[in-house]
Design a protein around this nucleic acid. Structure first.
Lengths: 136, 136
DNA sequence: CTGCCTGCAAACTGTTTGCACCAGG
DNA sequence: CCTGGTGCAAACAGTTTGCAGGCAG
């Protein structure tokens, strides 16, 4: 169950460092272009592999958010997210409400309920501006 | 802004009917194979187009759930979902907790917060059985 | 040295779209 | 009829993976 071995390659280190530095909850692609400025020859596959690795080992968080593209967060402290319904961008909620307990919850067809989470939908400032100018 | 015109084709009717009949919150693909039993020549593209259409016109609900594959719900009443962390399957929560209000919520970078929703993670019975037998 | 990790490219999955024909109202 | 909807296939976007060589420890 524990990791057999871990190699801190330059790629892995830079990915982790840049993810922790940014506050934008980037997709793998976005992080790829950020990291490429420091490691021009890194491949997208490596970014994916390391994001998976880092998420599995608990150093970063895979966001369980709606939307087609996965996003990642270098901040693993417990906090909640707003997601822009137009572009999928994610922001941090500063004053989180308590998510309800799942103790004793019983759902048909489910063996167990592990935890709950509050998700917020919103409109980010960029999209708000864009909608105002576009007829939509 | 209103729909210009709407044609209730056989395909659209069957898709809507089958989606309302099932309780499994199917993906487009799953619904495709259900519908194909009645309309063997229907195309997957048509299923996607109609799911989009029906969701936009409010007759069905696109589930804003985590996971890579979109799922749809023929039940548009307000209720909450548990999602299996292994297979993505979705179940209905029978006794929903109230989702917190978003009045006056302010998030940096966001113009507005529209609504909140509680999501539950769980393990469905199928996966629970499978995990027990597999070493994982 | 050893074998985990990388770059590269091809493969895959889920979804969208262009086009010519079809059929609902 | 007329124009939205359909089937089909090709195109896309995001992600995963096989392979040969590279580098961390």
């Amino acid at each position: 169950m524990a990791q057999v071995q871990t190699r801190m390659t330059r790629q892995r280190a830079v990915i982790l460092e840049e993810l922790r530095k940014t506050k934008t909850h980037p997709t793998a692609d976005e992080l790829y272009s950020i990291v490429r400025e420091r490691l021009p020859r890194i491949s997208l596959g490596t970014v994916y592999r390391n994001l998976d690795f880092l998420a599995d080992s608990g150093e970063i968080r895979r966001l369980e958010a709606a939307g087609s593209t996965k996003r990642f967060d270098g901040d693993i402290s417990r906090h909640q997210h707003v997601r822009c319904v137009h572009c999928g961008r994610i922001g941090d909620v500063m004053t989180p409400r308590e998510a309800p307990s799942v103790d004793g919850m019983d759902v048909e067809g489910f063996a167990s309920v592990l935890n709950s989470r509050i998700e917020y939908d919103g409109i980010c400032q960029d999209c708000a501006g864009r909608v105002r100018s576009t007829s939509h």
